[in-house]
Design a protein around this nucleic acid. Structure first.
Lengths: 351, 351
DNA sequence: CTGAAAGCGCTTACAG
DNA sequence: CTGAAAGCGCTTACAG
């Protein structure tokens, strides 16, 4: 395309062989100080830097990793990505961000094979490792086609999956406890005297949602609180979804004095729906979010949330991926904490 | 690393030369239907797909692009990225997302050469084109080191910069009108009878901020409204920044009945600050945001905003980059509209 | 210490 | 239509 020097150009100008140039580039000690200096001077002169494609071809390392997520505009994913990318960059890796646009709620409408084409691209591009978070992965029922593609990927490259192990797919699975926050939130609300507690958000047909509902049920039982399946209103993880879910819930006309929300984005929608129905938070209903994003502390009321420390989890993920790339197969386990952050949206029950 | 077939493996198993295999891969018509079928069968059998590194080395096309942004968690950037990535993927490109973490507000503290190392990485990896949005680029004063790195990049690869032309850097510049929204917002507030209008948000030392303030000044003048430089409170583009900026502004004790906010995130912080000071929006102060994100319609009050259609701009950007990669040097210009979206946060002035 | 040669996995003229 | 050869820009034994 444009004027970019190659190792041959440098070698010629220095009057040495390309082997010698290669040696100085790679800090091979078997080079005279003098020739080394001479070569380095020319390298600097042209700002020469070796072609990573050629290098990758021969060294079997592209210094590249792939991250496959459904939607980078989701704070959960971009928080993880930020950590991944930063650590990767520090380790001299570049990262392909693959945004598949997969949505569990509406996946009938979309191109079901989109994720699979991303898998193949990562294989073709010889990334040194791939990370998958979210997408079809989380579905309760996986299509055969997806499974095949995933298997093919796992056989071609070091693969890290954020989630529960999938039958027949041999790769590394990193899992964070996804339900503990639910129990913590519920215990807190119960301690405030709330009895009828709604559950808003979480996609239908997704493993995590099932587990969370299970935990919701169990915890209520343990606390001796009533369980009404009608108080569960699923939805996607975004603000508009929270809004419509809250409206649907309200339309059922089942009394509740507190609500659990999948994350802060959903909470914003719920807050809006409640305001439209003249329901005061926390005056009429207490609200707690199970996954804190960045705005919780600036909403009105300030949102009581569970901080799941997703950033920490991201740091852990990339650390694992990098060590796997370097041949370490023993992965350290980690306990990512989750903390209850009490703010203004929950108050004691009073009737 | 793991078992991945090469063109040689396929050729051997088919009993043909690698040239022939290459021809069927590349849909070269000069292959007998019969051999073609035979080769394709084996390709399918092993799920063979050519090594993109080797391909890129010879064809001078890596089918890869780079996008360099300061912070992907910023809705402005992720909205653009989403469009870029989707269109790129449809055109069979993968995208390296480089998150430089550059912040104009606090760049004294950070690694100033971070962006430059990303530039070099993109050159080394032989991406087919690079896109830069935000970062040092937007600064009023550019460091010589950055300028050199940028020049080097522009000479090595097709480069598209989102922003104003920079002296001495020959590349493609895509610029959207960044100040029109200010005038529209101001006109609207004036039409509601507001006279003292504050300006909150926008980083200091950045070109766009200068232009916006200039526009703010000019428009007030045109409208015959007073201009108080004390009513300008700069800050970064995030919620906490909006909060502290609003607090600072309030502490000055200069009366105003309406405020312009750089974007919705800043507006959320401002809303919170006002609430803490018992100032009602829109009762006491009307608020308008100059760049709408996704939550505007769910805040309380619902936020009146300028919709700058950043997604559309993103579609345009990638279309331009792709055509440049394909050798088209004539870039179509576009007029991205901006619309005033009236919601609840602005009401007529009444004293 | 240094260079010539082989090879990474492809594509593309060039012969046949 | 098909194969042998050259070559993309590197790295890495192998000689010297």
């Amino acid at each position: 395309m444009k004027s970019v020097k190659t190792i041959t150009d440098i070698a010629k100008e220095c009057g040495v062989s390309i082997s010698t140039v290669s040696r100085v580039i790679n800090h091979n000690p078997h080079v005279t100080e003098d020739t080394k200096r001479r070569v380095e001077k020319v390298i600097k002169k042209y700002n020469y830097s070796p072609n990573a494609l050629a290098r990758g071809l021969i060294s079997k390392q592209s210094m590249t990793i792939g991250m496959i997520v459904p939607d980078i505009s989701n704070p959960y994913f971009y928080t993880i990505f930020n950590e991944i990318e930063q650590a990767a960059h520090e380790a001299n890796y570049s990262v392909f961000l693959c945004n598949t646009l997969f949505s569990a709620s509406s996946h009938a409408k979309q191109n079901l094979h989109n994720e699979e084409t991303y898998f193949q691209m990562m294989i073709d591009k010889k990334v040194d490792g791939v990370l998958i978070a979210g997408g079809q992965l989380d579905l309760v029922h996986l299509s055969q086609s997806y499974l095949n593609a995933l298997k093919h990927l796992s056989q071609a490259l070091p693969l890290v999956i954020i989630g529960k192990p999938i039958d027949g797919i041999d790769c590394f699975y990193l899992n964070r406890e996804d339900t503990g926050g639910i129990a913590t939130a519920l215990n807190y609300l119960a301690s405030l005297g709330h009895k009828n507690i709604a559950f808003i958000g979480g996609e239908d047909g997704v493993v995590i949602t099932q587990e969370r509902i299970q935990m919701y049920k169990e915890t209520l039982l343990k606390l001796g609180l009533p369980f009404h399946s009608e108080l569960i209103e699923l939805s996607d993880y975004y603000t508009p979804d929270g809004y419509s879910a809250a409206m649907n819930l309200l339309d059922k006309n089942i009394p509740f004095s507190a609500a659990l929300t999948a994350n802060d984005n959903v909470a914003i929608g719920v807050l809006r729906a409640f305001a439209d129905r003249k329901i005061k938070v926390p005056g009429d209903i207490s609200l707690i979010s199970c996954d804190q994003f960045h705005t919780a502390d600036y909403l009105t009321p300030r949102l009581t949330s569970i901080d799941r420390h997703t950033g920490l989890f991201g740091k852990y993920i990339i650390q694992v991926l990098l060590s796997i790339i370097n041949g370490i197969t023993e992965i350290p386990s980690i306990k990512v904490p989750y903390d209850l952050v009490k703010r203004e949206s929950c108050i004691p029950y009073s009737k």
